[in-house]
Design a protein around this nucleic acid. Structure first.
Lengths: 152, 152
DNA sequence: TGATATGGTCAATGCAGTTGACTAATATCC
DNA sequence: GGATATTAGTCAACTGCATTGACCATATCA
């Protein structure tokens, strides 16, 4: 297959778009709250740590603390996230996923997984495994914060 | 390598983010206009056809014609795009890339290409070729408009 | 203990998109 | 051929999600 120089990023964007559309179609069909990508990345971040504050989240997402604060307020209102007083810092509040939040993440992973299954049915599971390794290798080698903050 | 179900879309988003950051760093270092992703997709679209109108562009980008019109006005002001009277339709204007616009696309492809080179240096050129094929296969199999409209 | 830094909030603003109303030219249908 | 409906494009108002800036309360440090 001929490959134009610079073509891969465009294909990556398109592949992501396709998978995202499938996810949104699945979520919408279930009539859930209109969660945006930033919300998903917030869930993913909070899963990984149990001492995160709003400022930590803002750093992770690459937005201001005011923007992060709004996201948290929204998610708290919907019952996905809760804020508890910080054990040692009287100014801060510790963020955490509620059971509803954790369930949501599991469900989203299942929907993502179906998109993966469809991909595997096209190129074969072995190729998909290799693709996973190659993505992981690139992201890891690119290291640092940039790789941790996703696109949206 | 163990693969969590639903992990691939996140890795794809991260890989895209990494490559995009590299592109932006390159462009910024050269002090060019602050072009947004939608602009890049506009260039790519106009490269492929020489009879496109603003409404066609809006369809392609998945935005309203008003939004597309703004993008065109901006790009025209910067000298990347020109609008000519439509040969047969008195209401419409035909969009086209200027020489400056075409040069920009070539340059962007070169910057994208450098990100690809870096990836190839990590996983090897053969694996990158295969990854390209697998991306292409997935996007093609997902067909239709969704695959043509990118994320941003 | 006083100066400075930090977590969080409130308010105002910016910007890229939207909806809605409109003009002018084209297409359709009798 | 003429009334009617579509369509390309513009102007104006509004919305959503981010920003900057100012501020308070608590921590930290010299």
């Amino acid at each position: 297959m001929i490959r134009r120089r610079g073509e891969i990023p465009l294909l990556i964007a398109m592949a992501y778009r396709v998978m995202t559309d499938e996810l949104h179609a699945g979520i919408e069909a279930e009539g859930r709250e209109p969660l945006r990508p930033a919300h998903g990345y917030t869930f993913r971040f909070l899963l990984g740590r149990d001492d995160a504050t709003t400022v930590d989240l803002a750093d992770h997402l690459g937005v201001t603390k005011q923007a992060a604060s709004k996201i948290v307020a929204e998610l708290e209102g919907w019952g996905y996230v809760e804020r508890r007083p910080h054990p040692t810092d009287g100014r801060a509040r510790v963020l955490g996923l509620t059971a509803k939040g954790r369930t949501y993440v599991e469900h989203a992973d299942e929907l993502w997984g179906r998109a993966e299954d469809r991909w595997a049915s096209i190129i074969g599971p072995d190729r998909l495994d290799r693709l996973h390794e190659d993505l992981r290798a690139f992201v890891d080698a690119s290291g640092g914060r940039a790789a941790l903050r996703p696109v949206w």
